[in-house]
Amino acid sequence: MTEFKKMGLALLAWALLITPGIALADQGSTVKAISARGELLCGVTTGKGTGFSTLDDKGVWNGMEVDFCRAIAVALLGDASKVKFAPLEFKSVIASLQSGAIDVAARQVTWTFTRDSEFNLDWAGIYLYDGQAFIASKAIGVDSALDLNGATVCVTSGSTNELNISDYFRSHEMKFVPIVGDSIEQNAANLEAGRCDVYTNDLSTLVSLKSTMAKPDNWVILPEVISKEPLGPVVRQEDPQFSDIVRWTLNVLIAAEELGVNKESVIQMVETSNNPEVQRLLGKSGEMGAKLGLANDWVVKVISAVGNYGEIFDRNLGKDSLIKMPRGASALWTNGGLLYPLPYR
């Protein structure tokens, strides 16, 4: 969510001023702490991120962020249930990481230069290429953001979304009238009541909003994505082994999709596959897991617990979910996307 970003950063900057380096002084190894605790502490969205982290009727956590936490727990502890989810508002994510209240934040936090360089944090990769887009009623007959000159635009007040659209409209020499709202619900109500022509927010938010509207077919998401919102798991800089484990957990999920290894087939492929890449990935040949301090068959366990990246995406955001978000830039590089697994060798 973007509306808290400004306020959160201000609070954090202030918080960091009064607590210089305390958190970094005697943290020790994250991996050791997790093993001793027998539980991974994973920061996720506060149960309000449809497709990212939600609670089902029985109080079980679901979503893309949640599955990614489970994957790390399997890699480290061999058990998808050994993870404790910490629901976090955006403004407390970075402080929670630094105070050691969580080990990793799989929460939607955009990877930016300032955050990476100022806060002693590491992004271990990118699991979703999100970006800001527009949703409009089909009735107004617009099919490109470039047709929006003079449009009224619903936007969250004080968010980076607001900064992004003014950049976008200025660079294309267009004008717009902002109609600000405080929340997604309020902006959606404004849009449906016709108080604005288009509503702008991150693509993942707009797609899930569209699926909840009374007549989803009456709305269209314009093709232009006007900002970059790369989302990825964040860890403290103190323990390189842990950030390697998180990075390679994400990476093997993507590699498994590329190699066609999925939840169903993974056990069988350990024995039957002749592909040397698959054999290395699944620990059939080589001693790859040990180099990270993990079991040699860690990838087999991870994939049989949560599936490969494609399965995680489809289940939570994509075609098997109610949201039906297109893969877009988060498709494999072989399918025209940006996901490019690093060589596992």
Partner: peptide, 16 residues
């Protein structure tokens, strides 16, 4: 908060 979280569950989207 728990009711709010419930409305984000894909099964119940739109029950705000």
């Amino acid at each position: 908060n728990i009711v709010n979280a419930g409305t984000a569950d894909p099964n119940w989207l739109g029950s705000t």
